[in-house]
C-alpha cells in the first residue's frame, strides 16, 4: 500500500501538471475548429495514463504543421533559432574548452576553487547575468567607451540589439554548462597518456590532437547539447539583448501569446519547437547512455 502511494503521488502530479498540459497544447495546436471557441473544454480524463496518451497520438494530424512551417515568418524564425543556437554553441565550445583544459591542468590545490568559480555564476540569477551585458554593450556602454579610449574605433559600434549581442549573451550565460562536462572528462584523463604519446614520438600539439581531444569527446558532446538545447528555446536573451529583427522561436512564441493573444498558433509553434528538439535530446541521451556504459 505504501509503495502504491509512493509511486502514485509523484506520478499523478506529473501526469496532471506535465503530461496533461502538454496534451492540451497538442490538442489546441491540432484542432482548427477549436480556434473559434476558447476556452476549448474537452473532457480532461485525469485518470488516463498511457492509454489516453496513445489516443492523442492516434489523432495527430500534421497538415496544420506543414502549413505553419511554410509560413515565411515562422519558417525564418525556426531557421534563425537553429542558426543562432548552433553558432553560439560553437562559440561557447571555443571559449569553454581552453578554460576547462587549463582547469584540468591546474595544480590540485587550485581545482576546488576554480570549480567553485565556474559553478558560482550558475547559482546567480540568469536574468541579472543577461542584464549585466546591457550596460556593457550599449552605444555609450563600457565596451564602446573602452574601445574609443584605446583608439581602436572612432565611432561607437552598435552591438546591443543585434544578433552579436545575443551570441555574447548565450556564450556568457551557458559557459558553465560547457566547461563542467569537458572539465570532468579531462580531469579523469591519466596524465601519463600524454607522456606515453610523447614518448612514442608525438609532438605536444599532435599529442593533444590525437589523445586529449578524443578522450574528452564525450564531454565536448555533452557540453554542446547542454548549450544547444536550451539556447534553441531561449527567450530572455533575445528579448533583452537582441533587436527587433532577431528572430528566435521562444520570443516569437511569447509575442504570439502575450501580444497577439493567438493561442493556437502559439501552441503549434511550441509543438514544432519540441519536434525540432527531439533529435538533439535523443542524441544527447544516447551520448549519456554510452558514457555510463563506458564508465562501468
Amino acid at each position: 500500500m505504501r509503495r502504491f502511494i509512493l509511486i502514485a503521488v509523484p506520478y499523478l502530479w506529473l501526469v496532471a501538471l506535465f503530461l496533461v498540459p502538454f496534451l492540451i497544447v497538442l490538442k489546441i495546436s491540432l484542432s482548427d475548429i477549436a480556434l473559434s471557441i476558447p476556452p476549448y473544454t474537452p473532457q480532461l480524463d485525469w485518470t488516463a495514463g498511457w492509454a489516453g496518451f496513445k489516443d492523442f497520438l492516434g489523432q495527430l494530424d500534421f497538415e496544420n504543421f506543414t502549413f505553419l512551417t511554410q509560413d515565411p515568418l515562422y519558417w525564418r524564425a525556426y531557421v534563425s533559432s537553429l542558426q543562432i543556437a548552433l553558432i553560439s554553441t560553437v562559440l561557447t565550445l571555443l571559449v569553454g574548452y581552453p578554460i576547462a583544459y587549463a582547469m584540468a591542468q591546474a595544480p590540485d590545490e587550485w581545482r576546488p576553487t576554480l570549480l567553485l568559480l565556474v559553478i558560482l555564476p550558475f547559482w546567480t540569477s540568469f536574468l541579472i547575468r543577461v542584464y549585466s551585458w546591457i550596460g556593457i554593450l550599449s552605444n555609450e556602454g563600457f565596451l564602446n567607451q573602452f574601445l574609443l579610449w584605446t583608439g581602436v574605433i572612432s565611432t561607437p559600434l552598435t552591438i546591443l540589439n543585434t544578433n552579436t549581442a545575443v551570441y555574447i549573451g548565450i556564450v556568457y550565460t551557458y559557459l558553465p554548462f560547457m566547461i563542467l562536462p569537458i572539465y570532468s572528462a579531462l580531469e579523469k584523463m591519466d596524465g601519463s597518456l600524454l607522456e606515453a604519446a610523447e614518448d612514442l614520438g608525438c609532438s605536444r600539439l599532435s599529442a593533444f590532437w590525437l589523445v586529449t581531444i578524443p578522450l574528452s569527446k564525450a564531454g565536448i558532446i555533452a557540453g554542446c547539447f547542454l548549450v544547444f538545447i536550451p539556447a534553441l528555446g531561449e527567450f530572455v536573451i533575445p528579448s533583452l539583448l537582441g533587436g527587433s529583427d532577431t528572430l528566435m522561436i521562444g520570443k516569437v512564441l511569447w509575442e504570439e501569446f502575450f501580444s497577439n493573444r493567438d493561442w493556437p498558433v502559439a501552441s503549434a509553434v511550441a509543438v514544432i519547437l519540441l519536434l525540432i528538439l527531439v533529435v538533439p535530446i535523443v542524441l544527447f541521451q544516447r551520448n549519456e547512455q554510452k558514457q555510463r556504459e563506458m564508465d562501468q
Binding site: 528555446g233 512564441l253 501552441s267 511550441a270
Partner: peptide, 8 residues
C-alpha cells in the same frame, strides 16, 4: 524549453 512549460 521554459516557454513551452509555461504555455502548457
Amino acid at each position: 524549453p521554459e516557454v513551452i512549460t509555461g504555455l502548457s
